[in-house]
Design a binder for these strands. Sequence first.
DNA 1: GTGGTCTAGACCACA
DNA 2: GTGGTCTAGACCACA
Lengths: 124, 124, 124, 124
Amino acid sequence: MDFIDYLDSRPIYQQIADRYRQLILTGVMLPDEQLPSVRKLAMELSTNPNTVQKAYAALEREGYVYSVKGRGNFVRANETLKSKQKEEMKGKMIDLIKEIQAVGLNSQELFAEAMEEAAEDDRD
Amino acid sequence: MDFIDYLDSRPIYQQIADRYRQLILTGVMLPDEQLPSVRKLAMELSTNPNTVQKAYAALEREGYVYSVKGRGNFVRANETLKSKQKEEMKGKMIDLIKEIQAVGLNSQELFAEAMEEAAEDDRD
Amino acid sequence: MDFIDYLDSRPIYQQIADRYRQLILTGVMLPDEQLPSVRKLAMELSTNPNTVQKAYAALEREGYVYSVKGRGNFVRANETLKSKQKEEMKGKMIDLIKEIQAVGLNSQELFAEAMEEAAEDDRD
Amino acid sequence: MDFIDYLDSRPIYQQIADRYRQLILTGVMLPDEQLPSVRKLAMELSTNPNTVQKAYAALEREGYVYSVKGRGNFVRANETLKSKQKEEMKGKMIDLIKEIQAVGLNSQELFAEAMEEAAEDDRD
DNA sequence: GTGGTCTAGACCACA
DNA sequence: GTGGTCTAGACCACA
């Protein structure tokens, strides 16, 4: 249950936020479902409540979650999250394409090869 | 000549390394060509020599550059750099594709849209 | 009948107090009319009786309500409530005007625009 | 020089952020001007560096400031800040107008009175 | 020296 | 019990 990777270069609070962002966007967590309490999650991950707090604050700021004092943090039912997410992914893709082109590689070809290899990984 | 962007989130030594990595891979700098001296580049960029040093050290570690004590830093003539670079880019692309698919988006479609937008940005 | 909005950033006890303050000031609730009992309202709102209690205590402290032990809470017939309320609102308006002017904006113009947009919101 | 007000209901990190937001928007602090370092400001305000850090992080997130590792925090030259600020003020005004109307007061009249009183305060 | 992250632990508001 | 703020202090990356 401990999904923190200390070898990961992302700070811990980021890893937590990324994790829950994903759970919400993939529909594993449903609107109004409660996230684990700050303290409980901190215990589970053997990390500090402040660190979890920082992750949850980011999620709230970004609109993934709403927090009710004395109650907990809950998944927000936000129709626009999906499209926001898509824009984010597109942004990353554009950056990568530019990086590829900047070094003189063919982004179309490289994408095709990457797709194949990604599919192979899945079959493993 | 000052290519450092303080609004960029990457640390300065990274921006310098990224810059020269690119100059080398795109063939703007040729094998055995000399890089600017640490002090000179530090002056030009009004930054700390330590910072330039750190960038050059990274380039040497990665095999882009070789350093000759008392003489300077020079571009390495390494045929394999290109393919190594390509594998790196493909790796990034595969990661991104997986991330996109993990949230249930269509990577093919998103790539196509990103290509268009990247082209538009270029025309600006 | 449940007017609590968990997405609202105000704490629940505040939302309850605000609600009844409004009902009283707008004349929907008349002098000596009885408020719902703490327990009943707590049930209706599926919230904690302590929370309702805290809201009622605030209303009593502010003079909107009087409580009779063993009987309940009742709207106070206070002629001065209206003008007190007006002074409060005016105070808020003055603070906001000063804030607007402090950053060099035209408060008159901004008020006019806000009035229009507020009216639009109503028509939705 | 200590602008923190412990009687203020806003948390300390908010007061700090509000303060610098204002300094930037009113042009007291100019683009690329450096903010006091986290540690120095913490000393000056006899507060904790973490608290200042939290304020600066908020300012960066909102686009008022950019941070350079190992260098410091600097005012961002953002043309759009002004209009963003205006929207924020308008939002506050709209909320207040609705609140006023909700209790059956005349917002136009109340605004006029508030303007007068605000002007009087200035003459003091 | 400068920013950023994290821990340990306290204390408050709220439900 | 639940979230939010804050302090004291450590440690790391970067310039």
